[in-house]
């Protein structure tokens, strides 16, 4: 009864077709006992929250769900995401849960290879053991795909996998997500969604020459994001960030992709909204907004086309 009334509210407010999925998992969260069917549905929810779907599915070329093949252009070359369906030959069908958890939290494959940090294990190392188990349970149920993996097209020295080991020595510190008792449960949930699952900083935080995020400028935006896009500052700085957005402006964007001025969000954020944040429950969307609004404001202007237009108007 409770779940169905929540379901009704969600359906009205999130305006997404896939909202049933979110409700399903919301109800699963509410339940004490986690049967395997519940684990699977929670896993499906987490898969969206963590953005795995958008990276591991080649939507642009009509690719199958999680069959990989999507090209990710970076300053170091082009990476192609692998097939993570349970196909034993082409996917990760002969992995066990331990292999999966090691890949997700330590960035190491079952044969000991070090993954490139484009696979955001730096953020995922903060995903809880329970959530990783649910993700794994869901991955076992996805229809198999026999799409072969494509080799990355990466420049020397990054083409040498051993370089990943060195990179990790320098920059990779697995994180454990701790509850901060000085903050509300909503804030803590938001922090987990943004830093661990949503890996928002992978795009919104500037990187050094070796591609490691500069934690001092967390979420302050960058002119050299993925695919060479400009990524805006999402700290609450009034002038250069989203300090003048209300909490509902933020949740509205996460639900619908609309910006406060009625324009629609573009570039890779349009994918993030479509395949990730619009699938979340209203409570989770609000938690993200609460967390973003609590960040320390950083003054960093990532000039956008619109601003260029604006200053022109001002001169005139």
């Amino acid at each position: 009864m409770l779940c169905s009334s929540v379901a009704f509210r969600d359906a009205r407010r999130t305006l997404t077709t896939t909202v049933t999925l979110a409700i399903f998992s919301f109800c699963a969260f509410a339940s004490e006992n986690t049967s395997s069917a519940e684990r699977v549905s929670r896993g499906a929810y987490l898969l969206h929250a963590a953005g795995c779907v958008a990276c591991h599915t080649d939507y642009e070329h009509g690719g199958t769900l999680l069959a990989g093949g999507r090209a990710l252009k970076t300053p170091f070359g082009t990476f192609y995401t692998p097939n993570i369906t349970a196909d034993p030959k082409y996917g990760i069908g002969n992995w066990n849960k331990h292999d999966f958890i090691t890949a997700m939290t330590r960035g190491v494959s079952p044969d000991g290879t070090h993954y490139y940090p484009v696979f955001p294990y730096t953020a995922y190392s903060g995903i809880t053991a329970d959530d990783l188990s649910d993700l794994w349970a869901y991955l076992r149920t996805v229809p198999l795909s026999r799409a072969p993996n494509r080799k990355h097209d990466v420049k020397f020295p990054f083409s040498i996998r051993l370089a990943n080991w060195a990179w990790k020595l320098m920059f990779f510190r697995p994180v454990t997500h701790r509850t901060e008792s000085t903050h509300s449960p909503e804030w803590n949930r938001g922090s987990y969604l943004v830093t661990a699952l949503g890996h928002c900083s992978e795009c919104h935080t500037p990187r050094n020459l070796l591609g490691a995020t500069k934690s001092k400028y967390a979420y302050a935006g960058t002119k050299q994001g993925p695919d060479g896009e400009k990524v805006p500052n999402i700290t609450p700085d009034r002038e250069t960030g989203i300090g003048d957005w209300s909490q509902s402006d933020i949740t509205w964007l996460l639900q619908t992709g609309f910006l406060p001025d009625g324009d629609v969000v573009g570039s890779s954020m349009a994918d993030v909204v479509e395949h990730s944040t619009s699938h979340l429950t209203v409570d989770d969307q609000s938690a993200i907004a609460i967390y973003l609004q609590s960040l320390i404001p950083i003054h960093n202007s990532v000039q956008t086309n619109k601003e260029a237009e604006q200053s022109d108007v001002d001169n005139w």
Binding site: L15, G257, V264, G266, A270, N305
Partner: peptide
């Protein structure tokens, strides 16, 4: 109305993505 608005927004993005410069 909300549903129609969501679909309208998708159609705005459907033109911006291929035909408008990124931010």
């Amino acid at each position: 109305i909300g549903k129609a608005l969501g679909a309208l927004g998708k159609s705005c993005g459907g033109c911006h993505k291929p035909y408008r410069k990124k931010m």
